[in-house]
């Protein structure tokens, strides 16, 4: 399709997609790729230098930093994607229901979203984690709870906008049922609108999960997680500052990859923006 062709011609997008896919594969196959066990401490080799055996050295308990990074992908990146997926699912479901059927159900859903949105999402996440107690599942739940209202509203407004299009009116006049209109017309358009936001947001979710883990509110030791690793590095900063580099860079790279990909997707999907860029170039 045109979409893929255009995306392929965007070098930045191709690089970002490759980075994300490679990182995800590394995370999924971490047990095969990682040279060491990420949890088991070996006190006799603590703070080992970079070597063939330990490509990124070891931490204060003698655990291989590279292995911990690789296993950390499973927690941070995969969970961020799960969070995003669940948020999108809830948002699409409710947004399409509200936007398609309108009437009282629309009012109920939207007023509920209004209540949730009148509250800053960052504080809400903190409040939910605070009430449920520190744990990774609670962080994920909090993130979904704080985000779904926003997505529901975005998707609803997108649906309302498409419902006004003549091709949907045509299908309605013809007597097509709701599921046909939603499947054939609404979902493809709405999803392509929302995918940009979701991609951009995935970066923020990763930052959020690792930030909360850094505070000790998310992942509990000894599970490897990037924010958690930074927290451990914090305590030994004066003696071994290099420990801060690997996890921080890992977070930075993956977050930037998601953001650049989001920007590229927007360029590809929005012809107007494309023209603007062409003119500016």
């Amino acid at each position: 399709m045109i979409f893929w062709k255009r995306l392929k011609s965007d070098k930045v997008a191709v690089i970002c997609i490759s980075v994300i896919i490679v990182v995800l594969l590394l995370g999924i196959f971490a047990p095969l790729v990682a040279p060491h066990n990420p949890i088991e401490p070996h006190i006799n080799v603590k703070f080992a230098n970079i070597s063939l055996d330990y490509p990124l050295g070891t931490d204060h308990l003698g655990r291989c930093v590279l292995s911990r990074l690789l296993y950390g992908i499973q927690t941070t990146v995969v969970l961020a994607l799960v969070t995003m997926g669940a948020t999108l699912l809830i948002g699409t479901l409710l947004g399409v229901i509200a936007g398609y059927f309108r009437g009282w159900i629309d009012e109920v859903i939207m007023r509920f979203c209004d209540v949730l949105l009148s509250f800053p999402s960052e504080v809400m996440i903190l409040a939910i984690v605070g009430m449920l107690g520190p744990s990774l599942t609670h962080v994920v739940i909090a993130n979904i709870a704080a985000k779904w209202a926003w997505y529901t509203r975005m998707i609803r407004s997108s649906v309302v906008q498409y419902m006004d299009k003549n091709y949907i009116r045509f299908s309605k006049v013809l007597g097509c049922n709701a599921s046909h209109i939603i499947r054939k017309h609404l979902l493809p358009n709405v999803v392509s609108d929302i995918i940009v936001l979701a991609t951009l947001d995935t970066g923020w979710v990763i930052l959020n999960i690792s930030g909360l883990s850094f505070l000790g509110l998310g992942v509990q030791a000894p599970t490897p997680e990037w924010g958690m690793m930074l927290n451990e590095a914090k305590n030994i900063m004066t003696t071994h500052p290099a420990q801060m580099l690997a996890p921080g860079l890992a977070i930075l790279i993956i977050v930037i990859a998601f953001n650049f990909l989001g920007d590229s997707l927007r360029d590809v999907l929005d012809p107007k923006y494309n023209q603007h860029r062409a003119v500016a170039k």
Partner: peptide
Amino acid sequence: HRGQMSVVFQDYTTSINSR
């Protein structure tokens, strides 16, 4: 009577799903 009534709109650009 599904499909027995039909319509052609003025604005053909939005009458058609561009996908």
